[in-house]
């Protein structure tokens, strides 16, 4: 029996493909703002949201979304204010988020295997409702990025130049942070909050060494992200491994292979 014969795997593939596609689109905007690790930090904050959801008996993905959005706006504020203690403020936010999540989850009496599914993803826990939610939010992220592509990339290319000419740079930067928060929240089921940062960044790094323009970097990144998720889920199915870790390892190996081949071709 292959993975496609099982309904939960078909659902997982769909969710994986959507997350795999949208994560690098947002990731590209983060990488270009030299904020590659923000996805990782937002994951930590989102985990506090998961904890709140479990304590309050509300859908954890939704509370994770709210927590990640608040975290994203805070991060953007710290970044744009260029606070001297900005780096430390972010460290405080990220670690408090993770620690708060752990305490909240344990107080909800759920400190067991279900925690792992939020931290590292779990194919079995993906429901049809998750599929609809992921599809909807993924669609919104893709539409917003393609509609505002020129504005978002103009800010990435030259933030000060854009600000001087009246482009609403701050609004666009908050938007990118919120999009990142959305991707983090929807990916909880597949890759988990601790590894989503990798799926945002690794396919973009790979794509950048294959692409010829910014637009092609986005397209190749999205395609690689989706492919990585599908290959990772299949490997996780046969190996009985955690899907999040497997997907990210596939992404990392792809990057290593592309980097090696590119280096060999140059020499």
């Amino acid at each position: 029996m292959g993975p496609l014969d099982l309904e939960f795997m078909r659902t997982a593939y769909l969710v994986g493909a959507i997350v795999g596609c949208t994560a690098p689109l947002v990731g590209l905007l983060l990488v270009e703002r030299r904020m590659s690790l923000i996805g990782d930090g937002l994951g930590h904050v989102a985990f506090a949201g998961v904890g709140f959801g479990l304590v309050l008996g509300v859908e954890p993905v939704l509370t994770a979304l709210v927590a990640a959005i608040i975290g994203a706006v805070a991060i953007e504020w710290v970044r744009s204010s260029r606070l001297a203690a900005g780096d430390r403020a972010l460290a405080l936010l990220f670690y408090s988020g993770l620690a708060g999540g752990v305490v909240l989850v344990s107080s909800a009496g759920q400190f067991n295997a279900s925690v792992n599914s939020y931290l590292f993803g779990s194919i079995l826990t993906i429901s049809d409702r998750d599929l609809v939610l992921t599809g909807l939010l993924g669609f919104v992220v893709a539409i917003v990025i393609s509609a505002l592509w020129r504005s978002l990339t103009a800010v990435a290319i030259d933030e000060e130049g854009a600000a001087v000419t009246g482009i609403p740079v701050r609004v666009l930067n908050v938007l990118v942070a919120v999009l990142a928060a959305v991707v983090v929240a929807v990916s909880i089921r597949t890759v988990g909050v601790l590894l989503i940062g990798a799926l945002m960044v690794l396919p973009v790094m790979t794509a950048a060494s294959l692409a010829w323009s910014l637009k092609s970097t986005a397209a190749i990144g999205a395609a690689l992200g989706a492919l990585t998720a599908l290959v990772g889920l299949t490997a996780a199915f046969y190996g009985n491994w955690a899907p999040g870790g497997t997907i990210v390892l596939v992404a990392a190996m792809t990057y290593a292979v592309v980097l090696t081949v590119t280096a060999l071709r140059r020499s």
Binding site: A156, I157, D158, A207, A208, A211, T217
Partner: peptide
């Protein structure tokens, strides 16, 4: 207003073409 800052460089690590950079300048 146009502003070219000191040590200008494209702010992005990914490959970016001449047309993409100039198009970004048209945004205002």
């Amino acid at each position: 207003i146009g502003y070219l800052r000191q040590r200008s460089d494209v702010g992005v690590e990914a490959p970016v073409t001449v047309r993409e950079v100039v198009t970004a300048g048209r945004l205002p």
